[in-house]
Design a protein around this nucleic acid. Structure first.
Lengths: 364, 364
DNA sequence: CACCTAAGCTCTTCCCTGATG
DNA sequence: GCATCAGGGAAGAGCTTAGGT
């Protein structure tokens, strides 16, 4: 037996050389310790081994119900909460889910975020939120950073990732769900609706109402707004007697005030315009306010279509037609799909199309 | 030399009994390993010890600049990102900050949250968001849970914590900053403004305009709305010829539609009311929409004061007086104060009063 | 002072023991 | 006797603090 006896391998009772620190009454607190009860302490109190305590708390089936109960009671008495860092280190995965959204100031993403929270938190999953400000490069940085946390899953917004982001994700093997757009790619899970088709629906709507001189107005650098514009354009291109739409796109973030301003600028430059597709509802509402102030009859003079509802839309019912998208539902469905993937359930359809709704309020 | 040689203490090259797993070309991947480059690998490539690499990456001063540069270059080449779980476990504190807010659907808190993000993320701090739905009990659960993450700091909303929450926080020794209200307590750091005083200011404003039959309308179970109401009441109680205000408070979350409804209900029950303080701007705006629809002249007939701005307020300028609170500034200042506390800078004034602004739009 | 070796943070995975059918 | 299963001992996971050299 050449091996020296490892008699010094005691953790919570040094008792050897430097001892005497805790002396009496003081529940040993080595200077590096976190000061919180550990699994070993819990196990000792419950009269089981640490590994059994661990299994009991994680709800692993193969633990005697009596023992499990003892462990749970001891945990409650101690106010024991497992150290997530140690758990992550040992198991090589955390209980976190990373969610990347392009903006925190856009209501759309807030609602989505809230729905995600509501699905994930009750399952004991931590939500890490990253705001990539519509920049794929920033998104890449965030992904790189969040992968270090070894999350159980990742939710991304849109499909415009950099190649590096893609390969990082693929290499990690962590489940990913894309929100807000539909991917045709095999094995890529996405939840959303066809942005392109929603733009096309707006074009058809305006054409059906007899509008012929159309415009598209967008703010922010949102790639999805652009896609909607492309769908809008596609339908119009198929019509003989309709001119290509006027295209007004500015980089500033959208706002009610900006909507009013763009509306004025547009009508000054193109007085014969009779239908406008605003890529955001706040732009649309700003336009309507401005029109009201200037006594421009809407929709008599100009038909306005806005993308998504603000709380006020209901109060402007006679004025505004809008595309209503399932903001919260996208978050909920995406989170649910992610949970399914984390549990190894891969049978479901990769893409979930939640559709959209064209809410017509012109006629009322 | 009595110690047996610890020749088996190699980590990334088992090479002993069960070996042969990776065999050739495969960069060792022990089954429990995370598959990511480790500090030890990085150190080896940079030609230094792990601890030096660690110090170099953390920016500890006592590292030779040349070595530090070598380490940084190696890290970039490897795409090395430190494992936060291991870091937390070893140092007994994470790089996270927990932020607890009562609601995600309220714009106020979103703006605050965004400002907090903007301060903390550039400093490499992770933001953990907890939504306690205006419930102190839920808040307590979240605090208990987040303390397990050993965060570097905690931001709380309001001052209505349960006693257990208070003692948990005190025992943890983690810096805490309270947002949205001002605490008088010694050593308690808070950033906000006096809710009570803002309500009082509204009362004085209405009295100065000759209004005598006042009402207070609140939704949601927000304790701060109640405090504003108390300030409102206090000022009115000091006036001889003014009746105590009509008090309308409902538990539903506030919304534009609800504001309109409450407005109608209120005027039906008390036709002589000539001034209303709405605890949220969406309630106030709903009231104004409803009044417009019913041709009730505002402010000729009723003066309306709303709490905080929605984006649309500017477009209803002639109609609405509002209290404007520094939403984003509260988040920013609170986050900054927290960072200062984390760095051991405790000299600053514990309470930061950011004030509020009474924006009068009646006259324009 | 710059750098390193040793130890340890707290949990889980691996693998084995001893009891059960 | 030979699988099956509950439970446990030992060995890390990857980093940082302590304390030398």
């Amino acid at each position: 037996m050449p091996l020296s006896v490892p008699a010094i391998k005691r953790k919570n009772a040094p008792m050897s050389q430097r001892s005497s620190s805790g002396s009496s009454g003081n529940p040993s607190r080595g200077s590096r310790a976190s000061g919180r009860p550990t699994l070993a302490e819990l196990a000792q109190i419950a009269g089981v081994s640490p590994i059994t305590a661990s299994r009991a708390l994680r709800g692993v089936a193969s633990v005697d119900p009596d023992l499990a109960k003892r462990v749970r009671e001891a945990a409650a008495a101690l106010n024991y909460v497992a150290n997530p860092a140690a758990r992550t280190l040992a198991s090589a995965h955390s209980d976190a889910v990373a969610v990347l959204i392009p903006s925190l100031s856009n209501l759309l993403f807030i609602d989505t975020l809230e729905a995600i929270h509501d699905v994930l938190m009750p399952r004991g999953l931590e939500v890490l939120i990253g705001n990539f400000h519509y920049s794929p490069e920033e998104e890449e940085k965030l992904v790189r950073n969040y992968l270090a946390y070894q999350p159980r899953g990742i939710l991304l917004t849109g499909l415009e990732q950099t190649p590096a982001t893609r390969s990082l994700l693929k290499a990690s093997g962590i489940p990913v769900v894309y929100m807000m757009e539909l991917s045709r790619e095999m094995g890529v899970h996405s939840v959303g609706f066809s942005q392109e088709e929603s733009g096309a629906a707006v074009a058809r709507h305006l054409l059906a109402r007899g509008r012929r001189h159309l415009a598209y107005v967008a703010a922010q650098l949102d790639p999805r707004a652009l896609e909607r514009g492309l769908g809008f354009q596609r339908v119009l291109a198929g019509e003989r007697e309709v001119r290509p739409p006027v295209w007004l796109s500015v980089p500033e973030p959208s706002s009610v005030a900006l909507g009013g301003e763009l509306f004025v600028r547009l009508l000054e430059a193109y007085p014969d315009i009779d239908g406008i597709f605003f890529c955001n509802d706040d732009l649309a509402q700003g336009a309507i306010f401005e029109a009201t102030r200037r006594q421009v009859p809407i929709p008599g003079r100009v038909a306005v279509v806005g993308f998504n509802d603000l709380p006020l839309s209901a109060h402007m019912a006679p004025r505004l037609t809008s595309i209503r998208t399932p903001r919260a539902k996208v978050g909920e469905a995406a989170a649910r799909r992610l949970v399914a993937l984390m549990e190894g359930d891969c049978r479901a359809e990769p893409a979930i199309d939640l559709g959209f709704e064209l809410v017509e309020r012109e006629s009322s």
